[in-house]
């Protein structure tokens, strides 16, 4: 499954989708489950929304600065995405990072999602000194943003505000015969 993962340090320095294509390793044809609103199952039971889950993605992380340009392979696994709360989490493995202690560095990936409707978190919070108009103009540059839901078959871009990250995920499914679904539901 060719996937791209791009990480930029600041909003102003991010690249637009389509750059930095890197091929990753194939992964099983698992994909998105769905999101469901809270509902009561039985008296005394409260369901809360369940998360979408993707399998592994792979790609390259590029870091550009005045001093150096570095790139290393990364594997990203998105564990959960709570659309109601605008929260996404997962794990990221970076392989052979220069100056790292171990060949594989793992870290928890988690943060607030900037979504197309700016429902939950936008950059208009004041933290980043943007004004809403700038914010809308800025985010509307990314036509695939609204495809957030459809990550399984499209190029999708997930923007996260805190910490700022842009995940660009492209999944293809050429060698499989369909998509399967897996889900969990919290109580």
């Amino acid at each position: 499954m060719p996937v791209r993962v791009v990480d930029t340090a600041t909003p102003s320095s991010q690249s637009s989708p389509g750059q930095d294509t890197n091929a990753g390793h194939p992964s099983p044809p698992r994909c998105v489950t769905w999101n469901r609103l809270p509902r009561s199952a039985l008296a005394g039971t409260r369901g809360i929304s369940f998360a979408m889950v993707w399998d592994c993605f792979a790609g390259t992380q590029n870091v550009s600065s005045l001093q150096k340009d570095e790139a290393w392979k990364v594997n990203v696994r998105i564990h959960g995405c709570d659309l109601e709360q605008g929260y996404l989490c997962g794990t990221m493995e970076a392989l052979n990072v220069p100056l790292a202690d171990t060949p594989v560095s793992s870290d928890l990936l988690g943060g607030e999602i900037v979504d197309a409707k700016i429902t939950h978190f936008s950059l208009a919070s004041g933290k980043h000194r943007e004004v809403p108009e700038d914010d809308i103009r800025h985010w509307s540059k990314f036509p695939h943003l609204h495809l957030f839901w459809w990550v399984s078959i499209n190029i999708s871009v997930i923007f996260m505000r805190s910490p700022f990250q842009k995940l660009e995920l492209k999944c293809t499914n050429e060698r499989s015969s369909g998509f399967t679904f897996s889900s969990y539901e919290l109580q």
């Binding site: 998360a51 564990h79 959960g80 989490c89 997962g90 928890l108 988690g110 919290l186």
Partner: peptide, 13 residues
């Protein structure tokens, strides 16, 4: 414990 374990961080970790 049920409500603490609703946390994506707790689950991921």
């Amino acid at each position: 414990l049920k409500n603490i374990s609703r946390s994506p961080k707790v689950l991921s970790g």
